[in-house]
Amino acid sequence: MSTHSHAEEHHITSNKTYIVVWAALMVMTAITVYVSYINFGTFNIVIALVVASIKASIVALYFMHLKFEDSITWVFALFPLSLLALLIGMTITDTFTRTIVP
């Protein structure tokens, strides 16, 4: 990670870093596509989502410079995700624990 200091607090990421990140993203895309042709049952979902989350994280950290942002940006980047988890989690809890009255 090379940073050139010029204006205050500006981190300029080098093109080399970007290309490494891009290559990693492409490799992971290839992995998910490849894995989708093999039947692992439920693990297909797990693998796909884990890989997608790693991809999303490095896009956020490097392409979007989240790595260099202050804590308040981190809070507002992560808090919506926890709300999303809450929305999905609790709606699923409701939907799949209902007693069906005949």
Partner: peptide, 12 residues
């Protein structure tokens, strides 16, 4: 899109 692609196209 990173999420949409596997969710829609890949997971079956």
């Amino acid at each position: 899109w990173i999420y949409l692609f596997p969710l829609l196209y890949l997971i079956g």
